[in-house]
Structure formats: C-alpha cells, structure tokens
Amino acid sequence: MQLIVNGETVDADVEEDMPLLWVLRDELNVKGPKYGCGIAQCGACTVHVDGMPVRSCSITAKQVEGAEVTTIEGLGTPDALHAVQEAWIDHQVAQCGYCQSGQIMSAAALLAIYPEPSDEQIDRALSANLCRCGTYPRIREAVKSAAAKLQGA
C-alpha cells in the first residue's frame, strides 16, 4: 500500500486494517507520534490527515491511503522549526514530554484555522490531548506566542 507521509510517497507492506500509528512507528520508523492509550483517549499519537488532527492509533492504514499524513517530523525540521515548535521551546512547555508531539500537532491544526485563538478556543482544541504533567498553562501561552509569531508580530 502506498501512503503519503510528510510529503513523501512511501510503500508500506502492511495489512489494510493496521492502525496508522503502527505503520508509522514500526514500519516507517517515524517515532514522533507516541503510543499512549491505544484507543483514541489521550491524543499522544495525533497526526494530521489532510491537515486535520487525527488519533493515529485508531485509524487504519487503508483509511488514509491517498491522504496527506503529517507527523511532527513533517511539521518542521531542526533547522526550520514550525512556529509552534519554537514556541514550545521558548516556553519550555514539556515536562516529561511524552504527550507533547500530539499537543503540538493539535496546536498547529488549531492555528491553521484560528490564527488568533481565544483562551476558550485553545482549551477546547487541546483539552482532548491529555497531559499527566499538567502543562496546560504553558501550552496555552505557547499557543499564543506561536500565533503571534505566525502573524509576524
């Protein structure tokens, strides 16, 4: 099966019903998306499918065939970070860090639609990405910084 991951078309010899997260991590060695709960409850595995955030543990390879899959590796690079990634570093959002790639992907999806999100919009968009360390206040501030950066402030 052919998948489009981070802009590259890749061949994956997998069963059609293999969860996308398994394809990414175990077959394509894309380790940014994390395995948290495995049942779309925590958000650690969040990727973008055609720009929208999706829990990759609960969508099958077949369901994303032909779609643009973007993981945190495709959001930015170490030399050219996405504004959200930069903001995450600036605010030192991560504590243990396990949920953070999912948080960043959800934040990037939010800012793609709401360039100046309110606190309420941030909370609604990111409350379903669970952080056991409780980094939400820093997440909210980092999202605001990223929003300003994306707007050239």
Binding site: P53, L110, I113, R124, A125, S127, A128
Partner: peptide, 27 residues
C-alpha cells in the same frame, strides 16, 4: 469529557472535528 464542544457545525469545532477521535467505520 475533555471539554468537548461540537460547535455550530455540530461535527466538532473546526480545528478538531468529532472524527479526530470518533473515526468513520462500519467495523
């Protein structure tokens, strides 16, 4: 839980539709 609001569209707020977690499948 998770502060979910389906928005005016009723399919989830625009940046996080219900399908972020509730996939579409007949399984």
């Amino acid at each position: 839980g998770m502060n979910i609001n389906a928005g005016m569209s009723r399919i989830g707020i625009e940046s996080m539709p219900c399908t972020t977690c509730h996939t579409q499948s007949t399984k």
